[in-house]
Amino acid sequence: MNFLKKASLTLMASAVLLSGPAFAADKPVVGLIMKSLANEFFRDMLEGTKEHAKKNGTYELRAVGMQNETDFQSQINAVENFITQGVDIIVIAPADSRAMVRPLKKAMAAGVVVINFDVSLDAAAKKEQGVELAFIGPDNRDGARLAGEALAKNLGAGGKVVIIEGNPGADNAHERKKGFEDAIKSGGLVLLDSRTAHWETEEANNVFTNMLTANPDIQGVMAANDSMAIGVVKALESAGLAGKIKVVAFDNIPAVGPMLEDGRLLATVDQFGRDMAANSIELALEVLKGAPQLTGWVKTPLKLVVSDK
């Protein structure tokens, strides 16, 4: 939290620097390309960014979202439209970490400052196209490890756990599973089973109920997002085991608030999605002003939220 406060202070400071009168007449235009706005995470991010754009006042925001998580065709069109419109900055959460490299290279060639956030572009694809591009985003693996370690601390070595995975093939699902596995290894936990519930509550409820039937000795559950954790908690309630079998998750959506309060959910991870795009835009504006190009991985803050119970 402290880090975040400091970060926002620096952001505010740079906002003041940027809002000189010289820029008032000709504001830089920022094109923000997100993934599915059907996803609570991106929806919240859009709201946060709009708020930021209004408060900051030094840039003009043009935001677009996609139909679904994998609709990279629409993202390619969006990049091309932004190039045509002559935007100064493109901030993008790529729907496909390989396919988006080529259109973004085109944008950079046209003089647009490109910032890649949320999901990293594929390193090999970047190399092949000769593109140098920094990544701004959370370390999903590290976040999942934090949640997993909270569970390991609660259960102690030898605790038996299962993982509920996100969509197979999705980069963040993969990273979060890896992070859970890191915590299982370091905490000496025993992994009984690991299955996908495609990020969805009802499927998680069914899948976990059946996993519990097959493994009645489960002591802990690591769910790759909160929506699935809600389904797991409901299954535990039906089995009379809520609070007894410990659950950790990821995202910190409002709906898990009551579950954290009474201990049905042990912990979740907040990745401050609301501020993620806004933070990226701040960095991009500095580059546009002449600051050196960003390199490597600029990590955004993650915070473990643990139940008091």
Partner: peptide, 15 residues
């Protein structure tokens, strides 16, 4: 039935 079973309404339910 979905709502009563899970205690939530999700706009991504039923895909």
């Amino acid at each position: 039935v979905y709502m009563a079973r899970l205690g939530i309404s999700s706009p991504i339910a039923g895909i």
